[in-house]
Amino acid sequence: MKVVIDAERCQGHGRCFSLAPGIFEFDDLGNGVVIGDGTLTDETIELARLAQSNCPEHAISIEESA
């Protein structure tokens, strides 16, 4: 499973990297970026879902099959 941020939609609300700093970080403009390739483990999946459900722009998606 993988988490992705749609850079077109992300407006830098910062909810993802505040809630789940192990999964997301921010760039120079303060937009959210996925750390590494975004692969999720049993330990990180719930946090990724929490971030997803707090992104006001609906910019975060979790690809179940990846």
Binding site: Q11, G12, H13, G14, S18, G30, L50, S53, N54, C55, P56, E57, H58
Partner: peptide, 23 residues
Amino acid sequence: RLENRHLAFGLGIHRCAGSNLAR
């Protein structure tokens, strides 16, 4: 509240530029 996609800082291209500072 765990799920909270609120719009206090707006939405879209004008999202509050100062939201990190405000928080």
